[in-house]
Design a protein around this nucleic acid. Structure first.
Lengths: 152, 152
DNA sequence: CTCCGATTGGCAGGATATGCCAAAATTGTA
DNA sequence: TACAATTTTGGCATATCCTGCCAATCGGAG
């Protein structure tokens, strides 16, 4: 993981479908060693995959919601059960554990408010053991990039 | 934006570098119309781009932070200035406006705590007009996907 | 200066993308 | 229901790109 690897990673974050030839040129390598570095980054798990960035509104999911959830009990079985169930919910694109009060923050995508009500009532509440739910709707997005900051 | 387009989108969210031939097979099309649909989705802005998914720890940015910021004044110039400055900060990968109290939520990536202190002191505070900052560190990530839920 | 390992560059064969045209399917209309 | 206009599809040929192999180069260590 040297400077050249970081250059490659950032170039592929900017455009994950650029040809290996263009990538090689962008990082001042010839195609062969460039491709080998990319394959190494993939095999070692630095590059976990590639994905299309899609406009959720155009796709039909105009409502993004950040949901913060706190559990009643923080014992192993309850935590495990909650996390396992959350992973299976398609509407949940992200779920992080935040330091502090054993809080979860979920990023949820739904087509309308009715779907969000369904999500809470039929997906979250049935899991059980939820102490509180705090809902924050995304009004608009000021910035969204997948390119990591350059290392200094 | 019919069902086939949605299938294409979700397949490319799962693997943004799959060949057009494989994609065509996955959505039951021949390569030609499949590629044309992809190009249309790109040209119409549904597919905004492609990016490599990179492990931030392996890259050297082990600390993810959600920062919630509230401004002192919500007038046009202050808001515009804040958003413009935030967009220029490399460490900020996301910035959303949350409904309710004109709050911002930022996703920030830094190598260590010192860098976060620098970020707050030298990037956020100099903007001015910030009333409060609430910091939540990500302890671990339970789920993270870029594939949208299927439409039902 | 010399040796050794790692990295690089170039080449050839195979796979993939892409533009074009005819065929098929779909939509709207009477 | 039948028909016509439009859209979408499938297949082919060419051009581009990927990828595995081998020799050449680079960078340290002794």
């Amino acid at each position: 993981m040297d400077q050249k690897d970081r250059d490659i990673v950032r170039a592929l974050q900017r455009n994950g479908r650029m040809t290996n030839q263009d990538l090689a040129e962008a990082v001042n390598l010839s195609p062969s060693p460039c491709l080998r570095r990319v394959r190494n980054l993939e095999a070692s798990g630095v590059i976990q995959g590639y994905s299309a960035d899609v406009d959720p509104v155009a796709y039909g999911l105009p409502i993004t919601i950040f949901v913060r959830i706190r559990l009643e009990r923080h014992n192993e079985p309850d935590v495990r059960k909650f996390e396992q169930r959350v992973r299976m919910i398609d509407e949940v694109l992200e779920c992080h554990i935040l330091t502090g009060a054993m809080d979860y923050q979920l990023r949820v995508l739904v087509p309308d408010l009715k779907a969000y009500e369904d999500f809470i009532r039929n997906r979250i509440h049935p899991i059980g053991g939820v102490a509180s739910i705090d809902t924050s709707f995304v009004y608009s997005t000021v910035k969204r990039t997948s390119v990591f900051p350059p290392p200094n």
